[in-house]
Design a binder for these strands. Structure first.
Lengths: 141, 141
DNA sequence: CTACTTCCTGTAGCCACTACAGGAGCAAGC
DNA sequence: GCTTGCTCCTGTAGTGGCTACAGGAAGTAG
């Protein structure tokens, strides 16, 4: 059994984040020592690591909770998992496209700026009436 | 002079967001009608539109405030603006790279999933010990 | 026994909004 | 003048996913 510090080290999840996950019910409450400290088994640490990897892949907590309940079943319904993963993959791809359009817009705005001169053409373009209002929101968030 | 609804329409900024920007001091407080309603001039609406465009480009509010104070100066120090824009451009490019790595990871995980079968290899891979802990955080947020 | 580290709970802050609740102002039609 | 319905007002709370304290208790090394 491991204290929260060791669990954090081994799972790669921040201590505060582990407690947050516990509060939110993402992972089950661990046992406690006589002095009231959390004690994690290797299995519980594996679960934390799983959550972190899913977060690194950009899955939201709500999806990860579904994943966790699926991993708890002896048969792991692959179809559902695949569908959610591919849906997320689509979102990631869309985000990439948006960001690439954004990058182009930023690039063409900034390349007109000559260093050092007054009357910045980039700010002017953003102030003007007709300029590109076609960028998607959410793109960079 | 325009009420907040018209200002919202013309600037593309949500009504609630306009009030939020006012509270936060992003844009100056507008005048009021006898009945206490906000009244916006065309200039103030242009400022709101400027903020929205910058947000669409992914600039954080703090940077936009700097932009606004720069546009208020008669000479607009282009060097500074360009530096901030290029810095942001770098961040966007980094985000794209991270997301592309993410997309690859998601793709290779999900393509091993055959629909319908039990024992999902994707979930297995994420549970296992040795699997890729090399993905960057923040990448999809 | 002391100093130091790790842990505990609870709360507040981050970003940039968004979503109410409960009330007031205002324009058009009758 | 009165009603209907729309827009607007303030203030507060919620979103996601953490992160950062404050103030105290437990454990450990010398």
């Amino acid at each position: 059994m491991f204290t929260i510090g060791k669990a954090s080290e081994q799972s790669g999840v921040n201590i505060e984040t582990i407690r947050y996950y516990e509060r939110e019910g993402v992972v089950p409450k661990p046992g406690r020592s006589a002095g009231g400290r959390r004690l994690y088994s290797s299995d519980e640490i594996a679960k934390l690591r799983f959550v972190r990897r899913c977060r690194d892949l950009g899955f939201p907590i709500s999806i990860i909770q579904t994943f966790l309940s699926l991993t708890a079943q002896s048969d792991r319904p692959c179809g559902e998992v695949k569908a959610m993963a591919e849906n997320h993959l689509g979102e990631v791809a869309a985000k990439i496209e948006n960001l690439m359009r954004l990058r182009e817009a930023l690039f063409s705005l900034s390349k007109n700026c000559d260093d050092g001169t007054a009357a910045c053409p980039m700010l002017d373009a953003l102030m003007k009436d007709g300029f590109g209002d076609g960028l998607d929101k959410q793109s960079s968030r």
